[in-house]
C-alpha cells in the first residue's frame, strides 16, 4: 500500500510539473508555424542520416511530411524548432512553381539578387555539399572534381539549380533551388560563380 501511494504520488507530481511547464504551441492560425527552410536544409542533412537513409522531399506530400516530422521529432529527440525548420525545407523542396515560366520575364526583376554567392552557399548548399565542396551526404557530387559536375556549362548548371536534379545512380535528388524557394536567378548565378571560383 505504501508503495502504491508513493508511486501514484510520484506519477501525479511528475505529470503536474510537466503540464505546468508546458507552453502553448498551436496557434489559431496556420499550424505548425513556419520554420526556416535554410536552417532546415542543414538540420535535415545533419540529423536524418543518423539512423536511416535520408529520404528526399518528393517521397511524401506536404501534409504527409507534417505527421512524419512530428513522429520523427519524438523518435529522434529533435527540438520543436528543428522539426519546423526541416518540415519547411521539405515542403519548400516539394514546391513545383519553378515549372511555370513567365512568358515575357523582365530580366531585371528575375535576376535581382541581394545575396553574394558565398552567402547563398553557406546558407543553403553547405548542408549537403559541405564547406569543402566534397559532399556530406550520400549522392552529393564532389564539386572539386575537375571533370565532375562543375565541368558542365553555366546554362546546364543553372537549369539544374533552378529545377533540381537527380544524378544517375544517386539515391537522392537535389531539390529545386536547393530547397530554398526564396532564391532568385541572380542568387543562383552568384552561387554558381562562387562554386566555380572556390572549388
Amino acid at each position: 500500500m505504501k508503495n502504491l501511494i508513493k508511486s501514484t504520488a510520484a506519477l501525479i507530481a511528475t505529470a503536474g510539473l510537466l503540464l505546468i511547464s508546458s507552453t502553448a504551441i498551436a496557434t489559431d492560425g496556420e499550424w505548425p508555424p513556419k520554420g526556416d527552410a535554410a536552417k532546415g536544409a542543414k538540420a535535415w542533412a545533419d540529423n536524418c542520416g543518423r539512423c536511416h537513409n535520408i529520404r528526399e522531399s518528393k517521397e511524401l506530400r506536404d501534409d504527409q511530411w507534417i505527421t512524419t516530422m512530428f513522429h520523427m521529432r519524438v523518435r529522434a529527440g529533435l527540438t520543436g524548432q528543428d522539426t519546423r525548420d526541416i518540415l519547411s525545407f521539405l515542403q519548400a523542396s516539394n514546391n513545383t512553381t519553378s515549372n511555370f515560366v513567365r512568358p515575357t520575364a523582365s530580366k531585371t526583376t528575375a535576376a535581382a539578387s541581394s545575396l553574394s554567392g558565398e552567402e547563398v552557399y553557406t546558407s543553403t548548399c553547405i548542408a549537403c555539399h559541405g564547406g569543402d565542396g566534397k559532399g556530406t551526404v550520400p549522392g552529393a557530387p564532389n564539386l572539386t572534381d575537375k571533370s565532375g559536375r562543375l565541368s558542365k556549362s553555366d546554362d546546364a548548371l543553372l537549369k539544374s539549380l533552378t529545377n533540381g536534379m537527380q544524378s544517375p545512380g544517386s539515391p537522392m535528388a537535389m531539390p529545386a533551388k536547393g530547397g530554398n524557394s526564396a532564391l532568385t536567378q541572380g542568387d543562383l548565378k552568384n552561387v554558381l560563380e562562387y562554386m566555380r571560383t572556390t572549388f
Binding site: 503540464l19 508546458s22 519524438v74
Partner: peptide, 24 residues
C-alpha cells in the same frame, strides 16, 4: 502530448527507450 519545443509526454505502450537498436 507535445508540451513545448523541448519535451513530449508519451503515454501508453512504447518501445523501450533504453539503448538505440530497439527503439530506432
Amino acid at each position: 502530448y507535445f508540451m513545448n519545443d523541448y519535451a513530449t509526454l508519451a503515454m501508453g505502450k512504447f518501445i523501450s527507450p533504453l539503448g538505440q537498436f530497439r527503439q530506432n
